[in-house]
Design a protein around this nucleic acid. Sequence first.
DNA 1: AGCATTGTTGATCGTGTGATCAACAAGAGG
DNA 2: CCTCTTGTTGATCACACGATCAACAATGCT
Lengths: 211, 211
Amino acid sequence: MSSTPQKRALRKSPEERAAEITEAARELALEAGLMALTLRNVAARVGVASGLVAHYQPNMDALVSSTFATIVAAETQEVAGLLSQRPGPSERLGLLVDTLLDNSRLDVTAIWVEAWTLGRRNETLAASVREQMDAWQKVFQGVVEDGNATGAFNVSDAAAVAWQILGMVDGLNAQALVRWDGVNDRGTHLARAVEGMVGAARGSLTPKPSA
Amino acid sequence: MSSTPQKRALRKSPEERAAEITEAARELALEAGLMALTLRNVAARVGVASGLVAHYQPNMDALVSSTFATIVAAETQEVAGLLSQRPGPSERLGLLVDTLLDNSRLDVTAIWVEAWTLGRRNETLAASVREQMDAWQKVFQGVVEDGNATGAFNVSDAAAVAWQILGMVDGLNAQALVRWDGVNDRGTHLARAVEGMVGAARGSLTPKPSA
DNA sequence: AGCATTGTTGATCGTGTGATCAACAAGAGG
DNA sequence: CCTCTTGTTGATCACACGATCAACAATGCT
């Protein structure tokens, strides 16, 4: 019955060790937040001395920033991938709204909210946050522009509307973080709101038009 | 040229001193965030020893929590006061959306966002957050219900829609915190979205119907 | 087998945090 | 003027943080 039997961590290649550290940071952040990313916490998770983590990172701000980027970028790509399987702009926008509000990614939402405040003291992180927000906005903007071209939507400023939808989604998710018990049919309400913004027909964004 | 000439702070009544401390905490939080509320920070601002702050507070979590409640409750009451001066539901809802997105309360928004994450480790704060969110939701719900009664709106679940609007406003404000340069006519876009949700006529929420 | 490279350790420093408490002194009441 | 209450101090403790670096040892190479 020994908790950590091996006294010394076995030697690994720098690439492998670096990957271990970033992976441990990723898991830790998802479980306990970006603020839990301390030298000693990450080191303990990997099973190495704290100094080793410091050796593979310029400083902790950088690790926090890159961990945030890793987690969030993965989510963006995952959802963007789902999008491409849908036929038209209305279906895509409906899927976006529905997917992002299904409460299955609350851990990532927590990371977002944390990054917004931590970015005040971590300029590297702040830059990452802006970058990842831009990526999300582009996803929305693409769908809105498609709908404009098709005639499904009627939007004068697609970029602005994309920012707007993104902000709404973020806010509703952040709210779910604190008030998990709140409203259930958030997707439907948001769909209706988005319809109002993009000038789409009422109900055109709901996944199942009619039973 | 002496920065702090008096060596010892002059004796004051407990009530007065307690008020000084909570006021200093309030200012500090608005300037540097809830995380800046440390024993030594607050004490330095009041001009007393750190032990005195601890003497007037059960622990720092409580001070953080009460400071949050003070700041946010003041904002709620202020905006709710503005509301009562407007004639109908449409005007009131339009004013709400417009006022909350005018970027004049970004410091309070920063406090909100910080509280969402700090609430994970500070249960007292988490309770305060839920309480203050409820207060805001009630403000929105009241307006929506009025509009329902008047016939200006057509909403089946006023409570749910109120939560929804609140979440949207929070999200857009949080976004403005990071992307201050973003979109300018956020109020107009949100008004259109809210119109979609409450079933109001397009443009009925914009403050100036037509020039 | 011996050596050189280099991944790894862990103690250490300086700073910051909340909390505690014996000692102090300002002010009020006698 | 003295005394006692009590507001106030600041040193102190235990802990956690990021960062640094001399010492160590595992591994590959000759």
